[in-house]
Amino acid sequence: MTDETLLIEQLQNVQTKEKAFREIIKLYKERLYWHIRKIVISHDDADDVLQNTFIKIFKNIDKFNQDSKLYSWMYRIATNESITFINKRAKQRNLDITDYQQELASNLTTDNFFNGDEIQLILQKAIATLPQKQQLVFNMKYFDELKYEEISEILETSVGALKASYFHAVKKIENYIKTKTN
């Protein structure tokens, strides 16, 4: 029995659920946090979404049927929660999602938890110009260093389509940075 299968079994058992869940948080808190943070941008929002993600994982672990790997399933929940969150915020502000994300990137100059330099700020603005799927693929491949096969399982998209998305994302970001720095 693999570690993951054992963990799932413990999570689905009432008596061992809490202990196993603590283990899950310990194992995945940082990876999920950074994944969420790159989508919602602000730390406070990332903290809210991370908590909601774990609550959702806890509530739905009994329904997890092991069609995919546990971490892919959790990443998928985190992704959906983050996207729902920013869409909701954009709607509340009566803004188009691209405009809202541009605003988030611009606000980073006054964010206490952004230590990036000028070029890193430009990078965040460049990412904000990309379509949602390309943003996700770029962040997961470039920063999280996930394999295409892993991203494919999380986003339920073919490897070929992911490669094309990543290629376009990288080219667009490179062009954006070149335009802004020259």
Binding site: Q51, L123, Q124, E174
Partner: peptide, 24 residues
């Protein structure tokens, strides 16, 4: 090679230390 390899984001000090308890 023309894209920075760090995103520049940071968290409050010891944010991850108390996360298990607060989530649970």
């Amino acid at each position: 090679q023309n894209i920075p390899n760090k995103d520049g984001f940071s968290t409050p000090n010891s944010y991850f230390d108390s996360l298990e308890n607060s989530i649970l």
